[in-house]
Amino acid sequence: MTLHKEGRKILFFSLIIFVGVFFLFEYALDTPTWVNNAVLVALIVLYLVILQFFRSPKFIINKDEKHVLAPADGKVVVIEDTEEQEYFKGKRKQISIFMSPVNVHVNRSPISGVVKFCKYHAGKYLVAWHPKSSTENERTTIVVETANGVEVLFRQIAGAMARRIKWYVNEGDMVEQGGEFGFIKFGSRVDIYLPLDSEVKVNIGDKTKGGRTVIAELKS
């Protein structure tokens, strides 16, 4: 287990602030010893909580051109046929994965291929399960085309708590299945849009592991 680069600055400044708060209570304020001890425990717990937000596990990725891997750790909250209006402008099969604050927040490419489309949208910060979060929240839309010409769209969506979306790809880039393409600080949601004939391999409520769980199989 390693720490993700997105957490280094936050962890560094958090440590400085927490140490400052502890010394304030310990030496500057006339507070009882039990209060100082309670503050110390609370600061340690809070720092460990922030620390776990930025863990980045290492593992072997089993690549398969027909498989669509989960782009994130989390829980499957949507499986439905829907209209995707930004890029495809037509019907696609949607799978959505909700990332809670306790999940790993690294986002991984569900397939290998070429990035055909990449766009960032500023927006609102509705809760991630709100029906309009996919179209109104801060988000990125990325489309990757496989070697067989199949296009898969995946979208990072910020929520009420997650307001820091990071992405590391641009149009024309080659991405590897399971490779890291982005990060959403403190969780949120990722939507995947697949061809209608794709075979879904998960159910509502299933837990997923980014880059490991097979969520669908491409038929094209």
Rank of each mutant, 00 (worst) to 15 (best):
I184E: 05
G7K: 04
K119E: 11
V115G: 08
K219D: 02
F13N: 10
F18P: 08
K93H: 08
N36L: 06
L48M: 14
L48P: 15
I192S: 08
I95F: 05
G7F: 09
F23K: 04
P101H: 04
T82C: 09
A160D: 10
E84G: 01
E6C: 03
E217A: 06
A42I: 10
V143W: 12
D30C: 01
E171S: 10
P110R: 14
I95Y: 05
V127C: 11
L69S: 03
V143H: 05
I17H: 01
G20H: 06
I10V: 10
V169Y: 09
K91E: 02
F183A: 07
F183N: 05
K91P: 08
H121V: 01
D81M: 07
S188R: 05
F54R: 12
K89V: 01
L43I: 03
G74T: 04
I97R: 02
D81T: 12
E84F: 02
R164S: 08
K132L: 08
K93N: 02
F12Y: 07
W129R: 12
I97L: 07
F183E: 09
F12P: 13
K9A: 06
N107D: 12
N148Q: 15
F154S: 02
G210Q: 13
V144P: 01
N137R: 07
T2L: 01
F98G: 08
K63C: 00
S112M: 04
T135I: 02
G7Q: 09
H4D: 13
K5D: 15
V21M: 01
L126N: 13
G123Y: 11
S14L: 13
R55Q: 14
K9C: 06
N148H: 11
E199V: 00
H121S: 09
G149Q: 11
V41E: 14
G159N: 09
F117C: 07
D191M: 02
K124P: 01
S109F: 03
Y47F: 14
I79N: 11
G205T: 09
I142H: 06
F18I: 06
F183L: 06
S220T: 06
V150N: 10
N137L: 07
T31M: 13
N148T: 15
E80L: 09
I95P: 14
I111M: 08
D81I: 08
V68A: 03
L196K: 07
